[in-house]
Every structure is written in C-alpha cells, then in structure tokens.
C-alpha cells in the first residue's frame, strides 16, 4: 500500500455511505537531537564557499531565521484527513495559520470546509478497487469512528 493509493480514495462510512475523499495522510515523525554539525544540503553548499568574511555568529543568525529542519527517524501513520469533496491539493492552508496572500487562503479554506481527521485505527478496510465496477481505491471506516479536528499541532 502506498500513500498515493490512499490519496483521493473514496471514503465510505461503516454502512457504506460515501463520506468524501482522503485529502491527506497524517504521519508522526520521530525526531532526534543531534550535534550541531548536521550534514545537509544548504549547510554543505555554504561550507564550500570561501567565506573568510563571514563570522560564525552571522552564520548562526542566518540559520535560526531559516525554515524548520529536523533530524528524523521512523514515520508512523496516524490517520487520514477526510474532506467532503474532491477539491484538489490543500496548498497547506487548511491546517496552518497562514492568512496571506488574500484571497488565496480564504478561497482554499472555503473549498475545504468540513475536513476532519480519522485515526488510522478507525479505518476498517482499504480496497484497491480491483473488483469489477469498484472504481478505484476506497477506504471504509470502522463503526464508532471519531471525526477529529484537522489542525496540525
């Protein structure tokens, strides 16, 4: 089973009622501490530079202003994000606090209103749609599944 199979799969309730589609797969990534000489793309590029005039403090300041970057270990499936309609990619707006540039996030949020998280334990079956007339991948939820808020922690 691949993540790509689950994405955009139809979501069915325990009784087979269509509920929407899978818009994303939520994972928990193990993160690790590490000594500050981490190997990595950008740092490496910088190291190759002849940077006599670049002070170390400057270097650190530049790093802290950068985007988040973690040393990671295993990735475990937590659940599926279910959206009531097929509205394409999220662009990240639904689950974050970003509100600019107007009006893009507002439109995307509107399209994705009503999205919720279902725990992986509450997924009863994943069908690859190989059976005749099944029409692609579908996911069936277990009885008593819970609709959890979709926001990222």
């Amino acid at each position: 089973m691949n993540v790509g199979d689950l994405l955009d799969a139809r979501v069915l309730g325990p009784d087979g009622v269509p509920l929407g589609v899978v818009v994303d797969v939520r994972l928990a990534l193990e993160t690790r501490d590490e000594p500050d000489d981490g190997p990595g793309g950008r740092e490496d590029r910088e190291d190759r530079e002849d940077s006599e005039d670049r002070k170390d403090s400057e270097h650190d300041a530049a790093l802290s202003s950068r985007a988040r970057r973690d040393a990671v270990g295993g990735a475990v499936v937590l659940g599926l994000l279910v959206g009531p309609r097929r509205a394409g990619s999220y662009h990240g707006y639904e689950r974050t606090q970003v509100r600019s540039p107007w009006p893009v996030p507002q439109i995307v949020r509107r399209l994705h209103r009503g999205t919720y998280l279902v725990r992986w334990q509450d997924v009863a079956a994943v069908d690859d749609g190989a059976a005749a007339g099944a029409g692609g991948w579908s996911v069936r939820l277990a009885p008593g599944y819970a609709e959890l808020p979709p926001e990222l922690g």
């Binding site: 802290s64 202003s65 950068r66 985007a67 988040r68 662009h91 990240g92 974050t96 970003v98 600019s100 540039p101 107007w102 009006p103 893009v104």
Partner: peptide, 25 residues
Amino acid sequence: ILVVANDPEYMGEHVNGRVVNALGT
C-alpha cells in the same frame, strides 16, 4: 511564488510583509 513567500515553514522570519502582500494581490 506568492503563496510560498507567505509560508513560515519555508521562509521562517522572512515571510512577505504587508506592503509586499498588498502589491502581490
């Protein structure tokens, strides 16, 4: 570009300011 320039996960503290976003819109 406009969308990502507003994403703190990419940009950290260097996300677009208000003026740039207004012009961008």
